[in-house]
Simulated assay, not measured.
Amino acid sequence: MDPSARAIWSVPAGEALVFDRTDFRPGGRDEYRCGPIDSLPFHGVVDYLHIASSALIVHTDTVTTNGDLLAAALLTWEFTDDHDGYTTVKVTNQVTSFVGDSMIEGHRNGHLKALSQLEDFVLFNRTEPRT
């Protein structure tokens, strides 16, 4: 999975994501920084547990800032093709926040925005981040 493409569709408008390391494979790890474009205060680690080509991705996502653990999550991305040539994407996001409910809501909203932007990226072949 191309990290430059993910940096386009997976980040809310007005924010940025920089991958410091990517290894998209079972047992692989991504390391990233994200947040406001001018500071990127959040650090994340994604560990890929299972990848079934074009069908299923299971990974963990741990987010920290200044060395403090903010959240840990287990995510499942399921891809189902229908008979009309479309793919349905279902994300199950089991997240634990160590800093309160706002982190849970941020995780939810972030994934909803990412899914919407992924749809735009695929349908309209977007090649630039939203601003």
Rank of each mutant, 00 (worst) to 15 (best):
D84Q: 07
V122Q: 07
V99E: 07
V18T: 13
T127H: 11
Q117S: 12
I37S: 08
A73S: 10
L17K: 10
F98M: 10
S10K: 05
A13E: 11
L75R: 05
I51V: 15
T87K: 09
F124L: 14
H111I: 05
P36A: 09
A5R: 14
L74E: 01
A71C: 03
A114Q: 03
M1R: 03
D101P: 07
H50Q: 10
F124H: 15
T88R: 12
H50D: 10
D82C: 06
Q117R: 08
H83G: 13
G28R: 00
F98D: 03
T88D: 11
A71R: 02
T131W: 01
F121M: 09
T88G: 08
V45T: 15
A5H: 12
L69T: 04
D38A: 15
E119I: 05
R6M: 12
M1G: 08
F121V: 10
I8F: 08
L75M: 09
T96I: 13
F19T: 04
G28T: 00
R126N: 09
T96S: 12
F98W: 08
G14D: 10
V18I: 14
F79Y: 08
I57D: 00
L70F: 05
F19Q: 02
S54N: 15
T96H: 15
H107W: 13
D30W: 10
T131H: 08
V99K: 14
D47G: 01
A7K: 03
I57M: 05
D82F: 04
G44W: 00
V63M: 15
A16L: 11
H50A: 05
E119A: 14
S39Q: 12
L112Y: 07
E128A: 14
D84E: 09
H59K: 04
G85V: 10
F79E: 01
L112R: 15
V95H: 05
D23M: 03
G110Q: 01
L115P: 02
D30M: 08
T131E: 11
S10V: 06
T62Y: 03
A7F: 02
P41G: 04
K113T: 15
A16F: 07
A72P: 00
P3Q: 06
T76N: 12
A7W: 02
L56D: 02
A72N: 11
D84L: 06
E78W: 08
D47P: 00
E128N: 11
E15K: 07
N66Q: 11
D120C: 10
D82K: 04
T65R: 07
S53E: 14
I104E: 01
F19D: 03
S39D: 15
W77D: 03
L40H: 02
S53N: 07
L69W: 06
S102R: 14
F79A: 02
G110D: 01
S116D: 15
N125C: 10
Y32L: 00
F24G: 02
R25T: 07
M1K: 01
L49C: 05
A5K: 13
D61M: 04
I57P: 01
E15D: 05
P41Y: 05
Q94I: 13
R126T: 12
D61E: 12
L123C: 10
G35T: 11
P129F: 08
W9S: 13
S10I: 04
A71V: 01
P36Y: 01
P3T: 08
Q94N: 11
K113M: 14
V99Q: 10
L112D: 12
D30G: 07
N125E: 15
T96V: 14
P129Q: 13
D47M: 03
D84Y: 02
C34P: 00
